Simulated assay, not measured.
Amino acid sequence: MITASLVKELREKTGAGMMDCKKALTECDGNIEKAVDWLREKGIAKAAKKSGRIAAEGLSRAAVEGNTGVIFEVNSETDFVAKNDQFLALLDTIQAALFANKPADMEAALACPCEQGTLEEVITNATATIGEKITLRRFAIAEKADDEFFGAYMHMGGKISVLTVLKGNEDATVAKNMAMQIASMSPIYINRDEIPADVIEHERGVQMNIMKEDPKMAGKPEQMLAKIIEGKISKHFKDQCLMDQEFFLNPDQKVSQFLKENNAEVRSFIRYAVGEGIEKREENFAEEVMSQIKG
């Protein structure tokens, strides 16, 4: 069954019209990823958006101590609570626990000892006193070598956080610029060598199907078509690769050129946007009021 919520999700991913989305889902038996490709192949949608709707509230944080960096996200139900002093103090507690214990996974993180018990108990107590569900959604710990350096940046107080490791010229401005670039342009990979082969093959298949639907391509030599397809694949992944992106402070310059000029190299990066990929529960207050009256 093709539900309204499924159609809505596809519209948000592709920007295509409601009827086109419904048809795509029908043609693809309700499979949303296949429906995205179907719309692209028909020329109705250019591409899926890189991230889902940002819905959940809370804050993320990136911090550095010596050769260790941490980045984590804590979710709350409302933005109001995320600005609460008690919530901010909880972030301090989580940060200290992550640095002190360097847990390997979420289970180990929640078991970290704090002054008030385990980290899980501290979060549970915060949930009880604040009155909203508070969760440590994810975290990562990065270690750097002595000849490497960190770039950390938090946008809007932690709505987006970035932790990146660089090598070469240890310039605080270069490091911050790279972290800001990643925050604003949300790359997925450092360069094209990092893109998995199956991801490239999937995109090649999509582009080949788009070609088949284009009457202008009919009768063109295979070598020419192959070259056009490779060009389209390259263009598709351009904004997903940090090195190929336009530098946000100078659109005439690529990030790779900026780094080369400054004798620096990005070794890794992690970017958290609060709530990405989480579907927020939709509330119909009129229906809620009516149900309470009837009850």
Rank of each mutant, 00 (worst) to 15 (best):
L10K: 02
E12G: 09
T14D: 06
M19L: 01
M19I: 08
D20F: 03
L25G: 09
I32Q: 08
W38E: 14
L39W: 02
L39G: 00
G43A: 07
I44K: 12
I44F: 10
R53C: 12
A62E: 10
A63M: 04
V64G: 15
E65F: 06
E65K: 14
T68C: 12
I71G: 07
F72A: 15
V74S: 10
S76W: 05
N84G: 03
D85Q: 15
T93C: 11
A97C: 13
A97H: 11
L98A: 13
N101E: 11
A104W: 05
A111N: 08
A111S: 04
P113N: 03
P113S: 06
P113I: 01
C114W: 11
T118I: 08
V122R: 12
A128D: 09
T129F: 02
I134W: 07
T135W: 02
I141F: 06
D146S: 15
F150P: 04
A152I: 00
M154T: 00
I160W: 04
V162D: 12
G168M: 07
D171H: 07
I190M: 13
N191F: 01
V199D: 09
I200G: 02
G205P: 06
V206T: 09
M208H: 10
I210M: 13
M211H: 05
K212Y: 02
M217F: 09
K220S: 00
P221D: 11
Q223K: 13
L225P: 00
K232P: 09
I233V: 14
I233C: 07
Q240R: 14
M243W: 01
D244S: 11
E246G: 14
V255D: 04
Q257T: 14
F258T: 00
K260M: 00
K260I: 00
N263R: 01
A264F: 07
E265I: 14
I270W: 09
R271W: 06
R271T: 09
I278P: 11
K280D: 13
R281K: 08
M290D: 13
S291N: 12
